[in-house]
C-alpha cells in the first residue's frame, strides 16, 4: 500500500476558495499563522470572507492584509487587541466581529472536527457571551449550548509535513492549527519543506494525513515569520 501525494502548487490550492467562503486560519499571534497562504489569498482577491481565527494578528500582518484589502465580511475571534485597524473597522461597521471566549472557540472547532454538533458549558453564564444561547440543564446544573464551528477551508502552518499531509507543529505555533485542520471541508497546509513518506515517525505526527487535503511548500520564507521587533 502507498500513500497519496498531496503536494499542490500554492496558487491552485488557494484558487479553490470562492467568494463568500468561511476560512479558518491557524496561529496565535505570529507563531502558526499561515502567512504565505494568506498572502496568496490577498493576491487572488476572494471577497466577502468570514475568517475564524484566535486573533487578527497585528496591524500590517497576516489577517490585516485581508482586512486592508477589503476581503473580509466577518471575523470570529477571541481577541483583536493587537490590531488597531481591526478594532477601527469593527467600530466603524466595516466588518462584523463575533467574539468567542478563547477556549470555547477552540472547543467549538474541535467538536466540529470530531463530528459532534455542540456541547454544554457554564463558561460565560451571566455575561454578554451567553446572550441568545439556549440554556440546557444537565444533572441539575444549567449551562449554555455552544454549537460546533465548521469552515469551508482551513489554512494551517506546519513546521513539518510529509507528502501525505501528516503534520507536525513547533512550540507555541501549534495552538489552533491541529483543531482547524479537522474542522474544515478542505484543509490546506503550508510548510517550509516537505519530507518524503516515512520522514515523519508515526508517533511524531500531530495531525494525521486524513485531515489534510493539500500540502503546499512555501516558495520563499517571508520576513513576517521572524521575530517581531517592538
Amino acid at each position: 500500500m502507498a500513500m497519496l501525494d498531496k503536494t499542490t502548487v500554492m496558487a491552485e490550492a488557494i484558487a479553490q476558495i470562492p467568494d463568500g467562503a468561511t476560512v479558518m486560519l491557524g496561529g496565535f499571534g505570529v507563531p502558526g499563522t499561515p502567512f504565505s497562504l494568506i498572502k496568496e489569498l490577498v493576491r487572488q482577491g476572494q471577497k466577502d470572507l468570514t475568517l475564524i481565527k484566535n486573533d487578527a494578528n497585528e496591524t500590517g500582518m497576516g489577517v490585516d492584509w485581508l482586512l486592508q484589502n477589503g476581503q473580509v465580511r466577518k471575523l470570529v475571534v477571541s481577541h483583536i487587541g493587537l490590531n488597531a485597524n481591526a478594532v477601527r473597522m469593527m467600530n466603524e461597521g466595516e466588518i462584523e466581529v463575533e467574539f468567542v471566549p478563547q477556549g470555547i472557540l477552540a472547543e467549538r472547532i474541535r467538536v466540529a472536527g470530531a463530528g459532534v454538533m455542540g456541547f454544554v458549558t457554564d463558561i460565560g453564564m451571566g455575561t454578554l457571551m451567553a446572550k441568545g444561547k439556549p440554556e440546557i440543564t444537565v444533572n441539575g446544573v444549567t449551562g449554555i449550548l455552544e454549537t460546533a464551528l465548521k469552515a469551508d477551508f482551513a489554512l494551517v502552518h506546519a513546521s513539518q509535513a510529509d507528502t501525505f499531509g501528516n503534520l507536525r507543529f513547533t512550540a507555541s505555533a501549534r495552538n489552533f492549527n491541529p483543531l482547524i485542520s479537522m474542522a474544515a471541508r478542505k484543509t490546506i497546509a503550508e510548510v517550509k519543506s516537505v519530507t518524503p513518506l516515512g520522514g515523519l515517525a508515526p508517533d511524531d505526527v500531530h495531525t494525521p494525513g486524513p485531515f489534510v487535503d493539500h500540502v503546499v511548500v512555501i516558495p520563499e520564507l517571508l520576513e513576517v515569520y521572524g521575530v517581531v521587533e517592538r
Binding site: 481577541h79 466581529v97 467574539f99 478563547q102 457571551m129
Partner: peptide, 18 residues
Amino acid sequence: IIPGKFSPGAGGAIELAQ
C-alpha cells in the same frame, strides 16, 4: 470590555476567571 471605548475581546479571561 468598556462599551463604546474598548472592546478587543476577552481572549481567555472568562475561562480563567471562572
